[in-house]
Amino acid sequence: MNNNPYLPELATIQEIITETGNIRTLRITLNDKDRMERFTFRPGQVGQISVFGTGESTFVINSPPTRKDYLQFSVMKAGEVTSRIHQLNAGDQVGLRAPLGNGFGFDEMKGHDILFVGGGIGMAPLRTLLLYMIDNRADYGDITVIYGARSPKDMCYTYEFEEWRAGGVNLILTVDAEFPGWKERVGFVPTVLSEVAPSPNNRIAVVCGPPIMIKFVLFGLTELGFEDQQIITTLEKRMKCGIGICGRCNAGSKYVCLDGPVFSYDQIRAMGGEL
């Protein structure tokens, strides 16, 4: 990064993938080739994408550091910036401030079994860690992924599920309700979690999804015997500066942009309410 942490680096959109009705994935590269080559980050770190004239918004880099052709971000249309991003095309210029935040402790996870529980767009931060682990498959034990969405139409990354499976991932897919042609599971993620009932022994659970899902998954994991420190999730907050200065994304004395977005469940408990 340069000496002004507010100054984005210019980047070009290489490709846009339409994931669902309101989620698009951008693949972008920094215009400065050297920077792009030297760019390093930890899975789980985030980037601030600028659409100049509209503003900045924070997204997790969901491609793994082991794959450097481009940096991938998945964007759900919700507010002003994301709506504008959805109007962009390949070849358009954006700004990028990255990497920001802490990222997953993937080294500490080595040698453990891993459980990913994702819902909807919540799969994005999990994908980066998942692909990193696939690329370093020998370092990790069993990898089970429970991924749920409202319907098959709301599921992201469907085009690479086979690749995940081929990479030694036990991929369990579920949708909220029956859908014509759907052959995988049907039911809410927390329900499927209790059906699958992965053992908490030597396992780390990484959870991301809508708040209501997280709430019940945390409950379910505790039921299954997971300790708070075995559960890891990523938090979302409104952010502006992304560098721990502007003040808004705090939960207690922690800044989600700086100290997060990845927190273990015991850390979150210590932070108090206001999530």
Partner: peptide, 28 residues
């Protein structure tokens, strides 16, 4: 505490930093 917003006209614009207040609903 501050906010950052973009203001643009046609092809040009600027990124502004302005005082914000944690007392405001929109802040978070």
């Amino acid at each position: 505490c501050f906010s950052i917003t973009d203001e643009a006209e046609n092809l040009k614009g600027e990124r502004l930093r302005s005082w914000d207040s944690c007392m405001f609903y929109h802040y978070t």
